[in-house]
Amino acid sequence: MEIIDLISPESVVPNLRATSKKQALQELARRAADLVGLPERTVFDVLLDRERLGTTGVGNGIAIPHGKLPDLNRLHGLFARLEKPINFDSIDEQPVDLIFLLLAPESAGADHLKALARVSRLLRDKAVCEKLRGTDSAEGLYALLTDNPATRAA
């Protein structure tokens, strides 16, 4: 499972505007809904449900909201770089400015877990995050996210 299997250049948002966690999730749900062709409300509810189990703000300015949708054909990712960091109830209480959204089909099971683990490992790399923060074009971000996965494995 590699990042390139999850996102396309169209699913990278270089400068998302939001002032709160809810607004960010709403905005992401809207864009994701467009990508996968499902109602915005459905996507948003799934994300909210997951946040209720515990925040997906994993610290160091990163959030990885995710959820399962019954009518999805495959795993879909959406990456957003925020214009201004927002409060996301993160575990380290730091504001979030990089968000990777992941939607999985109901039946994905193990693939869902593997994809999440892959995203989580990628965004744990401080150097990668610094580069993502310093890049403001969709193409640049896409290249960074999908670039040379082996060196990032550790």
Binding site: L53, G54, V58, K68, E106, S107, L113
Partner: peptide
């Protein structure tokens, strides 16, 4: 310490509330 890496290895990828149920966890991740 910069311990994001070791932390994730030892304490996991995501944090969850301890009072959610097994059923909720099962549903969330299949």
């Amino acid at each position: 310490r910069d311990q994001a890496e070791t932390e994730a290895g030892l304490y996991g990828d995501f944090a969850m509330t301890p009072d959610i149920t097994v059923a909720a966890l099962r549903d969330a991740y299949g």
